[in-house]
Design a binder for these strands. Structure first.
Lengths: 218, 218
DNA sequence: GTCTATACAACGATAGAC
DNA sequence: GTCTATCGTTGTATAGAC
C-alpha cells in the first residue's frame, strides 16, 4: 500500500526529526486537506495552503518539494481511513450485526471526516490517477473476498441473493453522500449545517432499507 | 430557474444569430463539459477548453467573456437534465411503478451523461456556490412535495413509513455513483469500462433493495 | 536546518487587427 | 462579426540568504 501511494523517496537516509519540522508539516497537511477538498487537485494552490498553514508559500515547497507530494501524503492518510472503516466482515459473522455496524461506521466517518471523503471523491471523479492501483488491487480483492462472504450468507439463508459488488456500491454511495453532498443534503433539509440527529436519521434509514431490502432479519 | 443560473446579460438587444457563432459556442460548451468534469472549476483552464474545441484561447473569451460564464451555461444545461429526470411522481401514482421508473431513469442518465453528473458532483462538493439557490429553492420544494407523496403512500399502506428526504438521498447517491465513481466501480468489477450489462445489474440491484427495503410490493 | 527573494511558465482577460 | 497579439497576474518551483 505504502509502496504504491508514497512518492519515491529515493535514498533519503534519516527521516529528519525536528520539532519545528513535524509541527509545520502537520499544519501544511491539515491546510492542504481543506484546500484540496474545496478546489480539487488542479485548483488547489500552494499559496492558499501556505496562507492557511500560516507559512510563507516558498516554505511549503521547502518541506514537501512539490504540490503532488503534499497531495500524495493527504491521500495516503485517507486510504488509511478507508481500510479501517472496512472492519472485518467474515462468513462467521452474523449479517444482522456486521452490516449495521459497517453502515454506522461509514456514516460516522462522513460526519467526522467530511474533507477526507470529499478529497477521495474528487480523486475518483478525475479518473483516480493516484488511487488507481489501490482500487484495482487492495479494494478489488477486498470486495472479491466479501462477495464470497455474502454468497455464503445467501446460501445459508441469512440473506437474499444480491449482486455483492453492487451491494457495496450502494452502501458506499448512501453513506458517503452525507459528506460529499453534505451541502445538498443540508439545503434540501432546510438546514445551515447537518446536525447530529440528521446523521442518526440517516443511519436508521439506510440501515432499515438495506437490511429489509436484502432480507436480513434483525 | 434561468434567472438564477444565467449570468446577468444586462441589456443585450439581439440574441446575435450567426451560424459560425452557434457552431463555435456549441464546440466550446462540449469541450468545457469535458474539462470541468475532469479538473473541476478552479482547475479547468480556458486554454484546454479552447484546444479541445479547436479554437484559439482568446477566441473562447470572445464568445463567452469569462470562464465563469462558460461554467454557468454548462451548469444550466445540467440542471435541465436533473429537472427532467425528476419525472412526475404524484400521490395518485402506484409506487410499484413510479419508483422503479425513477431509479431506472436516474441510472440511465449516469450511463448517458456521466460528465454532466460529475460536474454536478464537483459543484456540490466545492460548496455549491453557483447551484445553492437551485438547491435551496427548486430542489428543496420538490423534495418537500414528494415527501408528502411518500407519507400519503405510507398512510395508504402502499409502503413502509420511511424518512422521505433520506429516501431520495439514498436513491440519488446509489444511482449517481455509477457516473461519478465510475472509475472505482469499474476497477472493483475488474473492467476497463462499464458495460451495458453492468448498468442493468445496477438497476436490478438498486431497485430490488429499495423496493423490498421500503415494503413496496411489485 | 529554516526561510525568503526571485525565476519563469501559464493563467484569465482585453485591446486592437482583420 | 470574427479572431489574434499582448498584457498584468498568479502559478509552481528553486537558488540562495539567514
Amino acid at each position: 500500500m505504502e509502496r504504491i501511494l508514497e512518492a519515491d523517496d529515493g535514498d533519503e537516509p534519516t527521516p529528519r526529526g525536528g520539532r519545528i519540522r513535524a509541527r509545520n508539516k502537520a499544519h501544511i497537511i491539515a491546510a492542504a486537506e481543506k484546500v484540496f477538498a474545496e478546489r480539487g487537485y488542479d485548483g488547489a494552490t500552494t499559496a492558499e495552503i501556505a496562507e492557511i498553514a500560516g507559512l510563507a508559500k516558498s516554505n511549503v515547497h521547502y518541506y514537501f518539494g512539490t504540490k503532488e507530494a503534499i497531495y500524495r501524503e493527504v491521500i495516503a492518510g485517507i486510504v488509511d481511513l478507508w481500510l479501517r472503516a472496512f472492519g472485518d466482515i467474515t462468513a462467521n459473522d452474523d449479517p444482522a450485526v456486521a452490516i449495521p455496524a459497517y453502515i454506522r461506521q461509514k456514516l460516522l466517518y462522513s460526519r467526522k471526516r467530511p474533507l477526507a471523503s470529499r478529497i477521495f471523491a474528487t480523486e475518483i471523479i478525475r479518473g483516480a490517477p493516484i488511487l488507481r492501483p489501490f482500487l484495482e488491487l487492495e479494494l478489488h480483492d477486498w470486495v472479491a473476498d466479501k462477495a464470497r462472504v455474502l454468497e455464503r450468507w445467501a446460501a445459508d439463508g441469512k440473506m437474499d441473493p444480491v449482486a455483492p459488488h453492487h451491494f457495496f456500491f450502494l452502501i458506499w454511495a448512501a453513506t458517503q453522500t452525507y459528506a460529499d453532498f453534505g451541502t445538498q443534503v443540508a439545503a434540501v433539509l432546510g438546514r445551515k449545517r447537518l446536525k447530529e440527529e440528521d446523521f442518526e436519521t440517516a443511519i436508521e434509514t439506510v440501515t432499515q432499507i438495506v437490511m429489509k431490502g436484502c432480507g436480513i432479519r434483525r
